[in-house]
Write a protein that binds this DNA or RNA. Structure first.
Length: 288
DNA sequence: GAGCCGTGGTA
DNA sequence: TTACCAAGGCT
């Protein structure tokens, strides 16, 4: 399967997007911030917020010196605001335990809040040039199609998947790093979830899914994410009020943001529990 | 391992 | 319009 390398690397050399966190001028912190923001969030929406963050907090120490609430506020509408909390906490740990430098080792990164297997491998690879299996949704989809002949990978990462990805990883460290970002980019731009651009794919002639005639996905249905009326929507509404207000917010303001009382109370308690909101002694609410 | 956690763009 | 989904992590 190592005959996949050359076509993918050549394609990446020609078609890679120029992104701020890929610039030679970008440091490990820029990469780390981007990886947090890109968790489940499209590049287009990350770009402006990433730029603001790096300008305001050019180092982990700069972010750590702020309150967590300012990180949540600056997160804006990227979604999953607990990521902002975790990034702030990770920056604090980096200052306290790593001399203010983003760690290069997978294990050190993996131990930070908000960093799971993917993000640890991604930062070690993209920020420090280390050699790790970087298995995100893009890579998984490309491998499922090219090697397994299925349209989509299983719900969770399988052992076989990880083994395959490890076998495909080039031995040479810098080449492995380029390969990892190249396969991700191929999945993001060509081998997309919907309407893949097979005619533009450098692996078209080697692709098992294409050879099989693009059979439709027949695995278990992926349950749609409910939204309207859910706690997630309610939490989003409540936090938006806090984000868009300097200082404290009265309970009445939050009452106005969501009419269903029981659900509102449950969600507010959840936000406090998560550390995204604090209740003041006066009974008002604020960002931490 | 399944469920939960935001948001907005696209077809 | 509804449904899908976009560089996951945590419990």
């Amino acid at each position: 399967m190592s005959d996949l390398h050359e076509p993918v690397l050549a394609w990446y050399d020609e078609h890679a997007r120029e992104l701020p966190w890929r610039s030679t001028a970008a440091g490990p912190w820029s990469v780390m911030v981007s990886e947090f923001m890109l968790q489940q969030t499209p590049v287009a929406r990350v770009l402006p917020v990433h730029e603001q963050w790096l300008r305001r907090w050019p180092t982990p120490a700069a972010l750590a010196a702020e309150t967590a609430g300012e990180a949540v506020r600056a997160w804006g509408r990227l979604g999953y605001p607990r990521r902002a909390l975790r990034l702030h906490a990770a920056a604090t740990t980096i200052v306290e335990r790593h001399g203010g430098q983003v760690p290069a080792s997978y294990d050190d990164l993996r131990a930070l809040p908000g960093i799971g297997d993917y993000t640890a491998a991604a930062i070690a690879t993209f920020a420090h040039g280390r050699r790790h299996v970087v298995l995100d949704t893009n890579v998984r989809r490309v491998l499922a199609r090219v090697a397994t002949g299925e349209e989509f990978p299983a719900a969770g990462v399988t052992k076989g998947e990880r083994t395959l990805a490890a076998e495909l990883l080039p031995e040479d460290e810098p080449t492995a790093a380029t390969w990892s970002v190249a396969v991700m980019e191929l999945g993001a731009l060509v081998c997309t979830a919907a309407n893949p651009r097979c005619p533009a794919c450098p692996l078209a002639d080697l692709c098992a899914w294409r050879a099989a005639g693009h059979p439709a996905y027949d695995g278990p249905p992926r349950r749609a994410q409910a939204w309207a009326g859910t706690d997630r929507q309610c939490r989003g509404r409540l936090l938006a009020v806090l984000r868009d207000t300097e200082g404290e917010v009265t309970a009445a303001r939050l009452d106005a943001a969501w009419s269903e009382e029981l659900q509102r109370a449950r969600c507010l308690a959840g936000l406090v529990e998560d550390g995204l909101v604090v209740r003041t002694p006066r009974g008002t609410y604020a960002l931490p």
